[in-house]
């Protein structure tokens, strides 16, 4: 049980965020479907390419980086607390 609590505390205090380079995004949205917590949505505005880029929405990012791993265009940076 103790282990679970520790993980929960760690998770709750864990700071992470992603930064999507909207003008690099080509709009494949593979990040959207690969985020385990559904935290990535589609932007309403068009980017420089005339594409609705992916963007981070509300919610707690765990920094798992699944979005950056799948992004074919290297448009996502993941920052997390170390």
């Amino acid at each position: 049980m103790g282990g679970w609590v520790a993980i929960t505390i760690l998770r709750n205090n864990f700071m992470a965020k992603i930064k999507i380079n909207k003008n690099k995004c080509k709009g494949c949205y593979l990040c959207v479907v690969n985020c385990p917590n559904n935290l990535i949505k589609i932007e309403k505005e068009l980017n420089i390419k005339g594409i609705k880029s992916a963007c981070f929405s509300e919610g707690k990012c765990t920094g798992c980086a699944m979005c950056a791993v799948i992004c074919p265009d290297g448009a996502i940076e993941v920052y997390r607390d170390i």
């Binding site: 700071m15 980086a65 448009a75 996502i76 940076e77 997390r80 607390d81 170390i82």
Partner: peptide, 11 residues
């Protein structure tokens, strides 16, 4: 402290 992760998992 927010810090960039290294290699594969970031830009």
């Amino acid at each position: 402290m927010i810090q960039k992760k290294d290699t594969a998992l970031k830009n």
